[in-house]
Design a protein around this nucleic acid. Structure first.
Lengths: 192, 192, 192, 192
DNA sequence: TATGAATGAGGCTTCATTCAT
DNA sequence: GATGAATGAAGCCTCATTCAT
């Protein structure tokens, strides 16, 4: 007997429950600032056996990516909405702000977003999907003279993560976030 | 018998030699892409005992900072020269490019540069010294309307490291470095 | 619905098929040099659930013995034929060669053959049956002065397995097999 | 400060003591019938840290071989004495008996003796040395017509270990040892 | 000061076995 | 009967740090 969830293909009910528990605990660990995602620790906190975690996620990275796949899906949806905006520049800026805030909030998400090499095919698919929407926005904004000609969707993804990195490096929490994001947005405009 | 080096107080000749060896090996490790700086490994490669490394550098972080203190000193010198430039904007840009290239080349250097909390007092002093020169350049460039009003020297330091981070995230080596740096420089101009 | 096989009592058709699959895969594993017979691995390769393997064979040893029971049955048949040989010495030698070659080929078989403690009653029965034929051959050959007086059937079984062991210890495959077997056969003759 | 023992090159006094402790415990384990030589267990029993055991013996096999190197040395000495015997056949038989008893007593020793691939160079050297003495005895005995022409020193080594194996397979302890050894000795005589 | 052997906590991973479905 | 997800004990090994020499 199987259930169909958004997590993926058919899983036995108990397996799905365990998988969800593990994901939840992993998210908590990251939120608590522990980036190591030690599978043993996650298993203990999730109240499942180590083997169970290993079955679902052979490596911390796999777990990280599963987590991000969830976030990435939300981002892809948002990107589609943004791409439908009549005002391409407004759409782009809104999307960047949305992404920025998420990445600032969740360092694991940022890590996956900026990485050039994914372990899970699903991650790459989602990023490609995301990049398609961003490319469309960029092209339209570019035609309107609002964005420089030499940056592509993946550049924007990386520059945004770099900006998140810059905010994090500061000790005062996200106090400078607004300014740094604005520096990026200005930087994306055509050179004068 | 003691020698006087720029590293600090008088050291016995053999101690100074050991210290230098350790620093050299550590630099090689980092250049080789091994960021872990395991003190045991460094000791072995340097041909000294572990204890000796621990005496000089109680933690990997201390070693990292000692390394960066050397680089930082060079950067401080460059910053002083830049601050003497009549054209503040040109001086600033030159300095940023210089820093950018170093940080891109040496991830340990970038890490120290962006960190908000130093372990060694010397590091903090050097950063303060650096920031003074940058502040001066920023102020002059700002008066000329060439730089936005809401960024300070440490913002610039962090944004630069964020940009380095963005370049690193790409797989194609530093291919996009020029573009990303230009995005930052444009972003630092006053908002339109 | 049940079938009657030589394996034992009536089994449902699907159960019998699964049992046979498991045995076949186990044989392949051993032939491939993997002596561990991990029941999980066997189950996967056989395309059945772990539980199924466990139902049929509670331990790897049980599986091993089931495998050997099949071989042992063939050996018992051969021994009966040999015991019918008019020339007892010729019969004995032929049987030893036959056994030697099988054991050399299949280390699991050798292990069961030499063991003094069987887990399955069936194994002990077959060995006793085998030893009866060998004892008969030995006695007849002994009367003809062709075999030393102080070795019994189980000694011969063990010495043969020891010889197999000696061949295996060499790195050059079974190159020395003939010589080693001949050393054993000579050694079984009466002392001069 | 170092000491010179037969174990090898200079070792610090404490290191030598630990090494000896580990070897002693390992020997006890093997004598107790535990062939696994788990390094963690050995460390615990020896009252030293795991790391210490790993430093001296990176693998169970290395430990096994170190143990056997000691025994092997004794065997090499005995072989030299035997090779000096005027009666080559008597010397050979005495040496085989000596070896047989040791190997029967210590399964680790037998395992190293029969193996065709050593991990430690020292082991191979000792075996080569041993084989030289045996070869000499064999050649002399052969010239006197007392040994078959087609067996070399390493064949004898392996056949002897095979015989040990045969004795071990029996449940009644070494009751049949004498007979089995005699079968081997008879088997080594020229074929009639 | 320098050495490097020793330490052992800490993390990782497998796999034999059980049991809910 | 069959399935295979779950379990977690048990083994493995590394490496940061200490301290006797």
């Amino acid at each position: 007997m199987t259930v169909r969830g958004e997590q993926g293909p058919g899983l036995r009910a108990d397996a799905a429950r365990n998988r969800a528990r593990v994901l939840r605990v992993a998210r908590e660990r990251l939120a608590a600032g522990d980036d190591s995602l030690q599978l043993n620790a996650v298993a203990r906190l999730a109240g499942v056996g180590v083997g169970t975690v290993y079955r679902h996620f052979p490596t911390p990275q796999a777990l990280r990516e599963a987590l991000s796949a969830e976030d990435l899906q939300g981002l892809v949806d948002e990107a589609r909405r943004a791409a439908a905006d009549e005002d391409a520049l407004a759409g782009l800026r809104g999307l960047l702000r949305f992404t920025f805030e998420h990445a600032l909030d969740d360092s694991g998400f940022a890590a996956v977003l900026e990485s050039a090499s994914d372990n899970e095919a699903r991650t790459s698919e989602l990023k490609a999907e995301l990049d398609r929407s961003v490319t469309e926005l960029l092209d339209r904004a570019r035609r309107a003279g609002a964005v420089r000609g030499d940056v592509e969707a993946d550049d924007v993804r990386r520059l945004l993560c770099g900006t998140v990195h810059a905010v994090r490096a500061g000790d005062g929490g996200p106090a400078r976030a607004e300014v740094y994001l604005d520096v990026l947005l200005q930087g994306l405009r055509p050179a004068r």
